[in-house]
Amino acid sequence: MKTLFLSSKQVKRLLTMKDTLKAVETAFRHAGMGTVEMPCKVYLFFPKHNGDIRVMPSYIPPLNISGVKVVNVHPDNPKKGMLSVMATFILIDPRTGFQQAIMDATWITMMRTGAAAGVATKYLARKNANVLSLVGTGAQANTQLEAMMIVRKIKKVKLFDARKKRAEEFVGRYQKKYRAAQFRIARSLEECLADADIVCTMTPVRKPIVKAKWIKPGCHINAIGADAPGKEELEPAILKKAKIVIDDWAQASHSGEINVPLSKGIIKRRNIRAEIGKVVAGLKPGRTNDADITVFDSTGLGLQDLTTAHLVYKLARKKKVGRWLEII
């Protein structure tokens, strides 16, 4: 039997944000209904090299799909001309254990992360939310913006990045694509967050940078940056008054935005409103009124990678993309 191999360029050509949003919403719904198997991601740290790898297996029995992703995070890689995050996904036939496909999952990771925030925004942000603030304009900001533009009618996009040139390049890429929206680079983080309806934070900081006094009532926050123990972007006072929705308790409590406030006793498990899957499945409420501040703590689930990779596999077979090799 042969296995399908797909490169990064091939995956990128096949995958759209609209399709990814549907795939991730499906993953969340199955998680909420309890029809999945997903062990916690396993970390292997390389302190000497300021990096780590993460192994993320998952299985959705009703869809009869299974697989595993291996992904790294090495913040210093750009200095070496490499991406900070690189990933590979192995799609496995649960009936036999055979490797149906091996594909680059770097683009899948970026797309499903943007889509996760998009799905959370669909269910948690105010219906009339139209001012988006992006904190950080690195690689992940691209798919965050694309997802937000699909799930809400965004009229204004405010940006802040410590590296102003990167923010300017970001605006240059998207101002023409999204002509209906006004783009503005803020001079400070406070200015960026003023009057924001939706906030996406995408920084690797270990001390909070987003202050509670800058967040207005009714705002929805997608907290993306905290992805390892000790990381946090939001001042704990925000979490104390917000409706907190997480993607997965085990992962979020270990390495998500809530991990530090939990470890310090600032918040408790009872302060968590729901997992996003429960909200998507209609089993738990999300936003209850327009004054709620909502926070989505996104750590990234193997299930998101699985449904997205399976979608790519189906599209590749349909369009005859990729190379089939016999490796066993």
Rank of each mutant, 00 (worst) to 15 (best):
E25I: 08
G136E: 03
M202R: 02
I185M: 02
G225T: 12
T307P: 12
T137L: 14
M86C: 10
G300F: 06
F45W: 11
D76Y: 13
A101K: 03
W324A: 13
A27V: 02
K158R: 15
W107H: 03
T88W: 05
R287Q: 12
S263G: 03
K9V: 05
T307E: 09
P57K: 09
I272N: 01
V131T: 14
G118A: 13
L14G: 02
G322F: 10
K284F: 08
Y174C: 02
Q10Y: 04
Y43I: 09
M103L: 15
F5C: 08
M148L: 13
A147R: 02
K177W: 02
A162I: 15
K240T: 03
G277I: 01
L63H: 05
K41A: 12
T137V: 14
G277P: 05
R29H: 04
V171T: 13
I246P: 07
M111R: 09
K319G: 04
T113N: 00
K264L: 14
K177G: 04
Q100F: 00
P236E: 12
V171A: 01
V11Q: 05
N128V: 13
N77V: 10
R54C: 07
A281K: 11
A116Q: 04
P62K: 08
K48E: 15
R163M: 07
R163T: 10
A117C: 12
S188T: 09
Q144M: 06
Y313R: 12
R152A: 03
K207M: 03
G302D: 09
Y59F: 15
I246F: 11
P229Q: 11
T88G: 00
V24Y: 05
P229T: 05
Y313I: 00
N222F: 02
V280D: 00
F89S: 01
E326P: 00
S84P: 04
N130H: 15
K320V: 08
G172K: 13
S84I: 03
R29W: 07
T3K: 06
L301T: 14
E146Y: 09
V119T: 08
P204N: 10
I215W: 05
V295E: 02
L189E: 01
V73M: 03
I276Y: 05
T88E: 08
F89T: 05
G277V: 03
Q140F: 00
A212W: 00
M33Q: 15
K156D: 10
Q140G: 13
K165I: 08
A196E: 02
M110D: 08
D248P: 00
V11I: 06
A226N: 05
Y174Q: 10
F98H: 08
K9H: 05
S253H: 06
V135H: 01
L91M: 11
K211R: 15
K231D: 00
A223I: 07
I276G: 03
V210G: 06
V11E: 03
Q182M: 14
V55M: 15
E235S: 14
K48Y: 09
D195H: 15
G32T: 08
M38K: 04
V85D: 10
G302K: 11
D197L: 02
R29L: 10
S7T: 15
K176A: 12
R179S: 12
D247W: 09
F160T: 12
A237P: 03
R29D: 07
P229N: 09
V71P: 06
N77M: 13
K213N: 11
A281Q: 11
